Amino acid sequence: MALTGILLAAGRGRRFDPAGARNKLLQRLPRGELVVEASAGKLLAVFARVVAVVPPHDGGVAEALRRLGCEVTVCPDADGGMGLSLAHAIRHSLPGQPPGQGWLVALGDMPFVDPSTLRALDSAVKEGAAIAAPLYEGRRGNPVAFGPAHRDALLALDGDQGARRLLAASPVVAIVVADAGVLHDIDSPADLAG
């Protein structure tokens, strides 16, 4: 079983720029890469198929992701919250996905996750975990991998909580990692430094 990578890149990033003038996903990291390019690149290094979900007016995020090789889908209800975007991405991934496949759900504003973490989560689901999440120094982070048993629950998500309720109500296999990137998202310009 190979997981499909899901990249959530449909948020507005209001904490990064309350005025909404600067899209955090299109900001440059110290090595010159866009935040969303770095996040997608990690997924593409591990998964053969990466579905990225973007909002209708993304300022160039979809174009950057297509150039890298992501399958991009526009979520018309992206402003309704991460749950709607995630359900949209899962629904988009189903055609062409063999039955019994799972997903690794990553966030577009988390460019510092190490590919070894992605591989460890992938392995955990392949070995039978219904949900696997990284644990760094006792704190659960992102991304999160889901096995096929959670397909219907993922498709039913809505609102701004994403899969948080699903994670709270289901057993989660914690994968201990030495990867601080699982806790490091871009919420302010200072976070770009790494």
Rank of each mutant, 00 (worst) to 15 (best):
R12T: 12
R12W: 07
R12Y: 08
R12V: 13
R12D: 05
G13W: 06
R14W: 11
F16E: 00
F16N: 00
F16K: 01
F16I: 08
D17E: 01
A19F: 01
G20F: 01
G20L: 04
G20W: 03
A21T: 15
A21D: 15
R22Q: 10
R22Y: 03
R22V: 06
R22N: 13
N23F: 00
N23R: 06
K24F: 14
L25N: 09
L25S: 05
L26S: 11
L26F: 07
L26Y: 13
Q27W: 09
Q27I: 12
R28N: 14
L29V: 08
L29Q: 11
P30V: 14
R31I: 02
R31N: 15
G32N: 07
G32W: 03
G32T: 08
E33K: 09
E33H: 15
E33W: 02
L34A: 14
L34F: 12
V35R: 02
V35A: 05
V35G: 04
V36Y: 08
V36R: 04
V36G: 01
A38H: 11
A38L: 00
A38M: 10
S39I: 07
S39W: 06
S39H: 14
S39Y: 09
S39Q: 12
K42M: 14
K42W: 10
K42C: 06
L44P: 01
A45L: 02
V46I: 15
F47T: 09
A48P: 10
A48N: 08
R49T: 12
R49L: 11
V50C: 12
V50H: 01
V50N: 04
V51I: 12
V51R: 04
A52R: 00
A52H: 13
V53G: 13
V54R: 06
V54C: 14
P55H: 03
P55M: 02
P55D: 01
P56T: 00
P56H: 03
H57S: 14
D58C: 07
D58E: 11
D58V: 12
D58R: 03
A62P: 05
E63D: 15
E63Y: 11
A64Y: 01
A64M: 03
L65F: 09
L65T: 01
R67M: 12
L68D: 04
E71P: 12
T73H: 15
V74I: 13
V74R: 06
P76H: 04
P76R: 00
P76I: 01
D77M: 03
D77A: 11
D77Y: 05
D77F: 14
A78F: 11
A78V: 12
A78W: 06
D79M: 07
D79Q: 15
G80S: 13
G80F: 02
G80E: 15
M82D: 08
M82H: 06
M82W: 03
G83Q: 00
L84C: 07
L84Q: 07
S85A: 14
L86F: 12
L86N: 11
H88K: 06
H88S: 01
A89Q: 10
I90F: 13
I90E: 05
R91L: 10
R91N: 10
S93L: 12
L94Q: 10
P95Q: 09
G96S: 13
Q97V: 08
P98G: 07
P98E: 10
P98D: 10
P99F: 02
P99M: 07
G100W: 09
Q101F: 13
G102L: 02
W103E: 03
W103I: 03
L104W: 08
L107A: 13
L107H: 14
L107G: 05
G108I: 00
D109W: 00
D109S: 11
P111Y: 06
P111N: 11
V113C: 14
